[in-house]
Amino acid sequence: MSLEITRMNPHFADVMPQEYTDLVENGPFGRDFGARDLGSFKELFEEHPMCAGCNLSLAFRIIVASLPNPADTIMVGSTGCNSIAFPQLALHNVHSLFGNQNAIASGLKRGLALRFPDKVKDVVVVAGDGATADIGLDMTLHSWFRGEKFATVMFDNEIYANTGGQESGMTECGEIRNMAPTGKKFNKISVANLAIEAGCAYVAVVTTASPLKISKCFEKAVLVAREIGPTYVQIYTPCPTNLKLKSSESVSLAKERSKGTYQFREHVSPEAEEFLAARAEKTEEQVRVTSKDEEMHSA
């Protein structure tokens, strides 16, 4: 997809459903909207069939709103609760077989680079903890070893929520799940540490208790992946259905965990740090020039 694809054929403008007219006129394509502006623009991810209080859908909404260049982004999903969200997304996306997402994204990113050598095309993988840390761990790690330039996002609900509640590698030791009644016997896998060891240029661990932090980390992950190398963002997204929480309680749990066993962590490689600093400086300069222009105009 690219920006020109979001232009409507005028011969059919009168019959296009309102939703699409809204996406063209007030959507994020070619405009500088972000998670901070949620509610003020037409979003790419709106109605969805997830459970009430689902933190995965909240995280999904935030990252989709934070895409730096949605018109030139392709997202890759995998089996799990997020695969119910993906079909509702008004953005090109690929559903991979369970665990294959980082292998698919590797080929996609390389293919796009060959097909569109003069364009920036972002590839973003979004998968659950089962797809990323269990079934697809080899694909995930090898894409990082190879230095594939795309961002990987894990929605970590610490459970196979979609199939009734089996424990995953990301479940905390000792935790009991609906279909794991004797409790988890080994520690939670530290995928963030694996990502750093495997050479990810940017790694962040966040929870849904901090939407703007998710947004900032995710944006950094996409931009660093574009220029430098693989990146990884792990978001704690507690599942109210399997944890038997009221829908209003799941964010409170995320808040609680963010102060204890799920604290914010960020790893930025020296190269990525340099890149992000240069980018921030450039943005500040642009802001200065714009405000100077505005001052001159008002004078």
Binding site: M16, P17, E47, H48, P49, P87, Q88, A90
Partner: peptide
């Protein structure tokens, strides 16, 4: 029109 191929919910 068939503007895209999403199996929209609901």
């Amino acid at each position: 029109p068939m503007p895209d191929y999403r199996p929209k919910y609901p």
